[in-house]
Design a protein around this nucleic acid. Structure first.
Lengths: 237, 237
DNA sequence: GAATGTACGGCACTGAGTGCCACACCGGAA
DNA sequence: TTCCGGTGTGGCACTCAGTGCCGTACATTC
């Protein structure tokens, strides 16, 4: 059937329009179905819940990301693969800026939709996390690192995406995401690599060279933080 | 009224018991109320939704964290304050291990509850994030760093918490969280500090002091990575 | 003892979501 | 052509979460 996708799209458009016009709570599924020219029962054949109509192709997107990761080059650094996947996710929004912005403005106002978006994001996070864990060998020791790395990448993505959406979806956010991910990877890279290197045998303190960067006038606590961070000896409280 | 809290607790206990015994969907609010010895209407006076009965004091917890952050010593490094807050959150679970484990086993099986937990976690994330942003001065440039830092701390917390819950809630997870946060802070510290150093008028390279720690025999690429992380000048791909 | 405030019970109602059956359409097989 | 199974839709009835409203019981205050 060619009409299936059409009906689904009509329902989604109708839902978003009505939610924006009358409010989410004040809009019933009957009204959405009526506007799309189908029966109420048909709505629930295409969407499990009222909220789902706002994110019609989220499942397909997640599946695409999963497939991308399954097919990814396993000689590439895992973190780089995840970074690329984040660009893919971003592209799903930038492909249709108008719709993305409409959805964003809606989700900002409607709490159930906001929560829905958060759980959606957490699914990407989970997929990323599992990929990293698969690549890093599945050790329980590496789990923390994998989760933090995945969270950092997703956070960077969301931050860039939100900024782009707030600005009305103009311009190309991909370079910004690239920069953000580069920055994140620069911070996490040594940690991810360092953890694996530091595991077999703690290095003796005498065998170290210390280097840190500080502007003049930096408060002492920040200097201490730097040194602690560099040496991994944070002893504080 | 002394009975208010009592009724609320009874409702929550009844809900968790029934959900565990008969399943979440198969349990109606009427049954929960009946088991707690109150009217159905009373249930909805204490909980906004059916799910809320499983997390009866989440709002209070979040409020407590918010208050802690509001009253936190502003001379302490912001990241350390957040780390302490994470311990506070963890303590809320470890205070009553049996209940925490019961809830965990339930949420693992019931999707609506899982999603509820995710959004709950995201609220802590948001509070952490806003605190960091307040402390770092509110620059738009620092936002990425704040969000990543908050996400990393929350991720570490969740990782340690889940591990503890999976193990049945035995032992004290606080040392593990401490170690995890220390590790995360070690990775993020230089990055966070580095960004701030670059913020207020790029400091001239001559005005900096560089300190880095490396065990002997560290490969050159790792040294470069470290320095890039410390200086925030990552140029690579 | 009256007035006020608060928490609970009961009732009716809306609306999301589901199960079931009937119907329409489309392809292939006889 | 007719018969056929599979699929997508419409209509109907039903359960149940969640809300609004009102009456009532109880505790506090003046």
């Amino acid at each position: 059937m060619a009409g299936q996708r059409r009906i689904r799209d009509d329902l989604s458009v109708a839902a978003i329009e009505l939610f924006a016009a009358r409010g989410y709570d004040a809009t019933t599924v009957d009204e959405i179905a009526a506007r799309a020219g189908v029966a109420r029962r048909t709505f629930f054949r295409h969407f499990r819940t009222k909220e789902d109509a706002v994110f019609p192709d989220h499942d397909a997107y997640l599946k695409r990301i999963q497939e991308f990761l399954d097919a990814a080059d396993s000689t590439q650094p895992p973190l780089d693969v995840i970074r690329e996947a984040a660009h893919l996710v971003l592209a799903m929004f930038t492909d249709d800026p108008a719709t993305a912005v409409r959805r964003y403005r809606l989700t900002r106002q409607v709490e159930p939709l906001r929560e829905r978006e958060i759980t959606a994001s957490s699914r990407y996070l989970r997929v990323f996390c599992e990929y990293l864990h698969r690549r890093t060998g599945g050790g329980d020791e590496a789990r923390l690192r994998d989760e933090v790395a995945a969270a950092a990448v997703v956070t960077a993505h969301n931050q860039v995406l939100r900024q782009w959406l707030r600005a009305g979806g103009t311009g190309d956010p991909h370079p910004r995401l690239d920069e953000a991910l580069r920055s994140v990877a620069a911070a996490l890279g040594p940690w991810l690599a360092g953890s694996r290197a530091a595991d077999p045998g703690t290095p003796t303190p005498g065998d170290e060279v210390v280097v840190v960067v500080m502007p003049r006038g930096t408060p002492m606590w920040r200097v201490v933080q730097q040194v602690e961070a560099a040496t991994g000896t944070a002893d504080d409280g």
